[in-house]
Computed example of a mutant assay.
Amino acid sequence: MARRLRPVGLDFLEQAPTRLVFTARAAAAPEALYRALAEEVTGWPAWFRAVSLARPTGGGAGREVRLRGGVRFQETVVAAEAARRYAYRVDRTNAPGLRALLEEWLLAPAAGPHSPGDRSPGTLVRWTFAADGPAPLRVALAAARPGLGHSFRTAVRTLDARLAAAPARG
Rank of each mutant, 00 (worst) to 15 (best):
P56N: 00
S52T: 12
R92A: 09
W127Q: 02
R72M: 01
A27K: 13
T23H: 10
R4H: 12
G117C: 12
G97L: 14
L33K: 05
A140C: 12
A111L: 12
D132S: 14
E104I: 01
T23E: 15
R3L: 08
E81S: 10
A140K: 14
R6P: 03
G170Q: 14
G58K: 00
A80Y: 14
L159I: 10
A16K: 07
D91V: 03
S52V: 07
A165H: 08
P136N: 04
G112D: 10
H114M: 03
A83V: 05
R49Q: 14
P146G: 10
L5Q: 10
V71R: 05
L148C: 10
Q74L: 11
A32Y: 00
A142Y: 02
T93S: 13
V139Y: 09
Q74M: 00
R85K: 11
N94R: 05
E14L: 12
R99D: 03
A26N: 05
G117S: 07
R99Y: 00
V65P: 04
R19C: 05
V71L: 13
D11A: 13
Y34H: 15
R99F: 00
A168I: 08
R119F: 04
A100G: 11
G97V: 04
A100S: 10
R169Q: 14
F22V: 06
T76M: 13
W127F: 14
P109F: 06
V51K: 06
A61S: 10
A46S: 13
P17W: 12
P56H: 06
V71W: 07
R162S: 13
R72A: 14
R85D: 08
R119P: 06
S115G: 12
A80S: 15
V90W: 14
F73D: 06
A50T: 02
F129D: 03
G60D: 07
P134R: 06
V51T: 15
T76S: 15
R55T: 12
A155S: 14
T123V: 07
A79I: 02
M1A: 11
F129R: 00
G62D: 03
V90Y: 09
V51C: 15
P113H: 00
A142M: 06
A83I: 07
L141Y: 11
R162Y: 03
E64R: 15
L106P: 00
L159C: 08
E39I: 03
P136Y: 02
L137K: 13
S120V: 09
G9L: 04
R72N: 01
L106I: 01
G59V: 10
A24M: 08
W44F: 08
H114K: 01
F129M: 01
A87V: 08
R72T: 09
A110I: 03
L141F: 03
A24D: 10
A161L: 09
P7N: 02
R138G: 09
V21D: 04
A100H: 05
A140S: 15
L37K: 04
R157D: 03
R55A: 11
G122D: 06
E81K: 10
V21R: 08
L10Q: 10
P56S: 15
G60Y: 03
L53E: 14
L148W: 04
G147S: 11
A36C: 11
W127G: 01
R55D: 07
L106W: 00
V51R: 02
E103C: 13
V90D: 09
A131K: 00
D160W: 06
